[in-house]
Nucleic acid binder design. Structure first.
Lengths: 336, 336
DNA sequence: ATGAAAGCGCTAACAT
DNA sequence: ATGTTAGCGCTTTCAT
């Protein structure tokens, strides 16, 4: 029942422990005859090296693992990030520990603590918490740390983010080019950095167009599809409703689509969403979005982490990944 | 730079190594004064127990990790499974190693080999390969092994699958109840067990309705959205086309939706898909599907694995998770 | 080319 | 209540 050890292999092959170690690690200074004998024993015992024991004694003490803190492994954005990082890690023979923290900052700390106990070589974090000073010791200890989607707060660390401000601005000018002058904003809680950035982009967009900021058509703190749908309904039923809306997040866009459909306004009120949604092109009208590129973000984050792991200790970098406006129909409805 | 060890803590606190171990592991027989001293030292050194070293010596040699082989962490089905398993694992303080194998059987073996080297306590596998005899030593060594979505081949192991046959049958009888007598089948490669099962359900459904099996309106081996779209287009443009189609997989359903839209037949040809798709309710018509329950599948798989880990060594079980037909519109278009 | 001894960070088993 | 010794499975170091 107990898995075979190197000792077992050595005994069966009639060689010393170190010789088996040499064969397993493909070191030189083993004669072909000896190697063959050892390999036969390995096969016979179905031996597999215990990486944990191996790494314990190794110089450098690397575990060939990295920890990945995501919002939720099952949401499309997180899992696209995950996949991109997995692919990079695989090239280096590195395994991933992942965990979902559901925007819960306690869970973020708990996860990172667990990763630390497992001696991960580095950390990629989509942060939930708003104060990362607790990671100072970690950082000082030399553990590479890359933040994704949102920057670290109160900690100077590498980050990879989308161009949220620029993307929102682009959405605004796109809608304006179709004649819209009253453009509603629907966003998430402003404690979330990306939500705040997108609102800032909206404001800048208004300013660039010489338009006033009208608080009545700006709604934030929308945390679910239903809440978003209700907010959109209210906005459009009020007196002097906006002729276009900018929905600053995935679920909010979906909520807005439901609301517009119910009000029968889907071909009348223009809509641009931030973040692409599945099947957006099959909807009627197809949904215009500012799309992020989670695969590129994950790739950039992994590249950065591995550069750090390879010894790069230049000052923290902040990579901003471009977003793309994909015009599909809903954002090209002209103002009436 | 080197992380603090238990030794360091013991030295700083002026106690023996074992006392620190007792405090860290919350064992009894430590006076409050001593405990406080040790805890202060832990805080000052920012010490964190090295789990790998700890587990190396522990009785039972458990690593508190499980390995999860998925088709692709970024696809919705896989990631929903992943999340369900993560939640169960978290309750037990178990971490997950995950990997995507993209339907590549070599990659499946490679991943499982890596997991084995890391001494995972158990394995949950969505299999890509068609012969699992290579896992016999693993199984004999007592490593719990649960297959999900598709059963093991040539290996008697626990499995959790959807009711693919029954679901397909239900789709057939649903379409028949709206008058359809010529129902096309569009499916994936039959090497994939689920695809074969769904075709079998289709055949049974036909038989139950007293309908003939017409090879001309059955297409299999459709491996992408585009290929599926083309197949649907061909089917519907041919002489004597089916009045309804059953698309036996996610991407095929999406391909069919594109094709129907392009042909202008979306309100004429009935469609039932296997596996739910995002935003199916916002499409026009909304898409009727036979929905799997990946969260339930993952939960059941995790429960099974942990039962095995807790010592249950009864014969392998094959849990079948029910599927649900969700009527939304496309499947209720009557035959003309 | 090969192996014996020491030790990685920790827990088990046994003192005291 | 606390400490000491051995040893988990492996690599390092140093010998032969």
């Amino acid at each position: 029942m107990r898995p075979a050890t190197m000792r077992d292999v050595a005994a069966l092959a009639g060689v010393g422990l170190k010789t088996v170690s040499r064969v397993v690690n493909r070191e030189s200074n083993v004669s072909n005859v000896t190697r063959a004998r050892v390999e036969a024993a390995i096969d016979r015992l179905d031996y597999r090296q215990d990486i944990n024991a191996s790494l314990l004694r190794r110089r450098g003490r690397k575990t060939a693992t990295i920890g990945l803190v995501l919002e939720d492994v099952s949401n499309p954005f997180s899992s696209a990030l995950h996949r991109a990082i997995e692919d990079r890690a695989r090239e280096r023979g590195v395994m991933l520990f992942t965990g979902s923290c559901d925007e819960d900052s306690d869970r973020e700390r708990e996860l990172i603590g667990t990763f630390r106990a497992r001696r991960v070589d580095g950390l990629v974090v989509v942060p939930a918490s708003s104060d990362h000073r607790y990671l100072i010791p970690e950082q000082r200890a030399g553990t590479p740390l890359v933040f994704v989607d949102r920057p670290a707060r109160f900690l100077n660390a590498d980050s990879v983010t989308s161009d949220n401000v620029g993307g929102a601005e682009r959405a605004l000018s796109h809608l304006a080019s179709f004649g819209h002058r009253r453009i509603g904003f629907l966003g998430d809680a402003l404690e979330i950095q990306t939500a705040a950035d997108r609102l800032q982009g909206y404001s800048r967009g208004l300013a660039a167009l010489g338009l006033d900021h009208e608080p009545a058509i700006v709604r934030t703190g929308l945390r679910s599809v239903d809440v978003a749908a209700r907010a959109v309904t209210e906005l459009l039923r009020a007196a002097n409703p906006p002729t276009a809306v900018f929905t600053a997040q995935n679920l909010i866009t979906i909520g807005a689509l439901h609301a517009l459909r119910e009000l029968g306004l889907e071909h009348t009120t223009a809509l641009v969403g931030f973040d692409d949604i599945e099947l957006a092109d099959l909807l009627e009208p197809a949904v215009t979005v500012v799309a992020q590129d989670p695969a590129a973000m994950g790739g950039a984050a992994a590249d950065m982490l591995f550069r750090r792991l390879d010894g790069d200790d230049s000052p923290p970098e902040h990579v901003v990944i471009d977003v793309e406006l994909i015009a599909r129909g809903s954002g090209e409805i002209p103002s009436t």
